[in-house]
Amino acid sequence: MNDDYDTPWKEVVTRYFPEFMAFYFNDAYAAIDWSRPYAFLDQELAALSHDAAQGRRLLDKLVRVHLRDGGEQWVLVHLEVQGRHDAGFAERIFTYHYRVYDRYRKPVASLAVLADSGRRWRPSSFAYELLGCEMCLMFPIVKLQDYADCIDELLLNHNPFALVTAAHLMTQQTRHDATRRRAFKWRLTRLLYRHHWDRQRILSLFRAIDWMMRLPEAMEQKFHADVLHLEEGGHAMPYVTSIERIGRQIGREEGRKEGREEGRTQGRQEGRAQGRLQGQAEMLLAVLADRYGALDAAARARVEAADEAQLHRWAHKVIHAASLREVFGD
């Protein structure tokens, strides 16, 4: 299976940055004043690092935050989520660090999450010494593989990044075992609704898990059908997805209009189908906006008017398309 880790990490870290810091870097989280707004400076980071070695990183972020002690008006947090062993990783952290400091003349904290599949690689410093001059940068790291033996404990944790970590690790472990991956993905999906999170958080995390833990196409379609019927199986979920809710509401309205059992049955079926289509369109719009930026009215209208087959074709194109134009194929 051709797994994609990049897109899920980008979405959830951007949307749930405080939870990211609380789960992986708790000391830094405690030092930040979360009552004051923070800001992502991704474009500025891209401009500073355009000629730096890329490596296989899943994410790099530059965030402006305020500290609780008030000693600085604001400081900078440079984040890296590294997906593969890279001999030049520590030097790249050093390069980004000094370039950010040189640009803003503000204190910089570089933090790294190592998401590779090995356990030994743990770069946490870059240093050299020449003619009595010493240079050294030490930076905190988190190794996802350290959580590999405590998956069950992760699933009991209410921080969303516990589930993201579990999904990442199980995606690595089930690369050649679709049946086992499907079972764990189903377990994670059920847990999302049992946490009693708000609708947006459930949809965002489901989208990340769904994107990361890819299944063969036939198994994927069956999985999504099963998700839509969680409530029908007698599980006390607050809402499975907006898809099922919309479908049921439309079905009830249609049934009342008909006034007959046949009309109610048909209304529920048509409503469920329409709700499923609307939910798929909503999910695709969210992915497109995250990947390519804000959508104009024409693009939104095109997605909302598409049939199910067309939505599936566009969703598959998003995986490799470099632009919205490539997704739509014109």
Rank of each mutant, 00 (worst) to 15 (best):
D290W: 01
R264A: 13
Q173I: 08
C136R: 15
G83N: 11
K106H: 15
T174I: 07
T265A: 09
W74D: 09
P18D: 15
A52L: 04
H176C: 03
E44K: 04
P238M: 04
A87Y: 15
S117P: 11
Q280K: 00
R201M: 10
R84D: 08
T95G: 08
L67D: 14
T265P: 10
G132Q: 06
N157H: 05
R64W: 14
D116Q: 15
W74V: 04
G83S: 10
S125C: 05
W9H: 04
Q54E: 15
K143L: 10
E261C: 05
A90P: 12
Q266D: 15
A183E: 12
L215C: 06
A315Y: 08
A148P: 13
Y239P: 05
A322S: 06
A127Q: 04
A52D: 14
L58C: 05
G255I: 09
R84I: 09
L163G: 12
D4H: 03
A112S: 11
I250N: 02
Q73H: 14
R36C: 09
F184D: 06
I319T: 10
D330V: 11
W186V: 08
A218L: 05
W34E: 01
W186D: 13
M1G: 13
F139Y: 07
K106E: 15
L131W: 15
A178L: 03
V65W: 15
Q43E: 11
K106I: 12
V75H: 09
